[in-house]
Design a protein around this nucleic acid. Structure first.
Length: 437
RNA sequence: GGCUCUAUCGUCUAACGGUUAGGACGGGUCCUUCUCAAGGAUCAAAUCGGAGUUCGAUUCUCCGUAGAGUCACCA
């Protein structure tokens, strides 16, 4: 019984961009196959000629590539018409299906379709995740399995393909659970071996309903665009509805493939929590090499190479993902900040003191080495301690960034470089001098 | 509405029928600190309700309640 080689599959239809929820289903299928030394198949379910689009098929491939999920295939149902035809004929011949004359109620409907002859029985199956499930098939009626011999429909094609491709475990989203009895009926009529079913819980939006376009970003590749790392997405997705039973949270896909089991998959749906995703992404961001980080930053920030070399580690301190850089006010790195002179003065300080501190600071920094942030800090720290850290440091930092919130003055000075730093400080000094007279 | 499924902190989740119900995200407070971020410490926060089984139910059973999915000549 357990002799069967593990074969799982993901069977998306190219009728829209590949969904983040589908990505998780694919991941679970993939992981289960890997965990059991099995095979993972990608099958494009494009029997609906009206709605299937090549661009969406591409989107599916790009999605798998981005996540790094290797698969067997891809197979396309649109290329397997002859196979289905043969199976439909078998069903017709055995009396399990029949050609039904119909009244076309809607435009495009046929006057003749092929229906499955429902034996009206009770179908029981054991779902690996949900447990025993029972359906009365009588309320399904004689459902349509093909428009004609050359135009098979979903239920038929899934069963035929899963049967012929020797799929051992059908791991799919819970929304498919009510399709299962129909498919078991066809499968039995065709004499295929029954796969093990595992219906994984849905990915939910914050309102607890199935995630859809109206909830925001649902296409997997939207997350690529937003600057998330595929490793972070995988790690996050794996933890929606599954957990290792330990307190380890960071997993590479290889580690996941080792640990994954259907027994630990949750029964109920899981709400998609962007904050947690961001946290995962940050974990991976912190592990990236300097080169990778610089490359990522370049997509969102224009900065001289040499300056970027000093700024990269500071830039990622305040973000979870690269695209967050868009929301950061970073213009002060490239252009002289514009600000109100009065903002140069720290809390209880005044313009006279601030002017003096600026003057002294400029002198100190002119003699300082700028080869590291520490050098800069060391040169001015004692003076700041003596006069009051806020009184000295705030004007410097403000003169450099023009912002109430920014990295510390030493870091800023280091990134901007000596020439630019001194110039901005002189500028500030000039402004405050003018204010006084 | 029919059918099917689900139910532990706000969210993701852990807990052989016996735990002060644990962890993570997020949040609060404190420390650090010129600001922000980061970091460290710390706190708050949950077993849907009612019966039953049991010496003992988060855990098993039943009934409620709530939520979800699905009901195509789509997949």
């Amino acid at each position: 019984m357990s002799e069967r080689k593990v074969v799982t599959r993901m069977a998306p239809s190219p009728t829209g961009k590949f969904h983040i929820g589908s990505a998780r289903t694919a991941l679970f299928s993939y992981l289960y196959a890997k965990a059991n030394n099995g095979k993972f198949i990608l099958r494009i379910e494009d029997t609906d000629k009206e709605r299937s689009k090549k661009e969406f098929e591409e989107n599916i491939f790009d999605s798998f590539d981005w996540l790094g999920l290797k698969y067997d295939g891809p197979y396309r149902q649109s290329e397997r018409t002859e196979i289905y035809k043969e199976q439909i004929q078998k069903l017709l011949d055995s009396g399990n299906a029949y050609i039904s004359k119909e009244e076309a109620k809607e435009e495009g409907q046929r006057g003749e379709v092929i229906r499955f002859k429902n034996p009206n029985t009770k179908i029981k199956f054991e779902d690996k995740i949900l447990g025993d499930i029972e359906f009365e098939t009588s309320d399904l009626g004689d459902f349509v399995i093909a428009k004609d011999l050359d135009t098979p429909l979903y239920h038929l094609t899934v069963v035929v393909d899963d049967g012929l491709m020797k799929v051992s475990h059908v791991i799919r989203a819970q929304e498919h659970i009510s399709n299962t009895p129909r498919q078991i009926l066809i499968l039995e009529a065709l004499g295929f071996q029954r796969p093990i079913y595992a219906h994984i819980p849905l990915v939910l939006a914050p309102d607890k309903t199935k995630m859809s376009k109206r909830h925001g970003a649902v296409a997997l590749l939207d997350y690529k665009e937003a600057g998330y790392f595929p490793e972070a997405i995988i790690n996050f997705l794996a933890f929606m509805g599954w957990n290792p039973g330990t307190e380890q949270e960071i997993f590479t896909i290889e580690e996941l493939a080792k640990e994954f089991s259907l027994e630990k998959v949750q029964k109920g749906g899981a709400v998609f929590n962007v904050d947690k995703l961001n946290w995962f992404n940050k974990q991976y961001l912190n592990k990236k090499s300097k080169e990778e980080i610089i490359a990522g930053i370049k997509h969102y920030v224009k900065m001289p190479e040499e300056m970027l070399d000093r700024a990269w580690s500071t830039l990622i301190e305040r973000i979870h993902k690269f695209s967050d850089l868009k929301d950061e006010n970073l213009t002060y790195y490239n252009s002289t900040p514009i600000y109100d002179v009065k903002d140069l003065i720290w809390k209880n300080s005044d313009e006279y003191q601030t002017k003096t501190y600026l003057e002294d600071s400029i002198k100190i920094l002119e003699d300082s080495s700028f080869s590291s942030m520490e050098d800069i800090k060391n040169s001015i720290w004692n003076y700041a301690e003596e006069k009051g850290r806020g009184d000295v440091l705030w004007p410097i930092r403000f003169a450099l960034s023009g912002l109430a919130k920014s990295p510390d003055p030493f870091t800023l000075a280091f990134i901007l470089g000596k020439v630019e730093t001194i110039e901005r400080l002189r500028n500030a000094h000039k402004k405050i001098s003018e204010m006084i007279k």
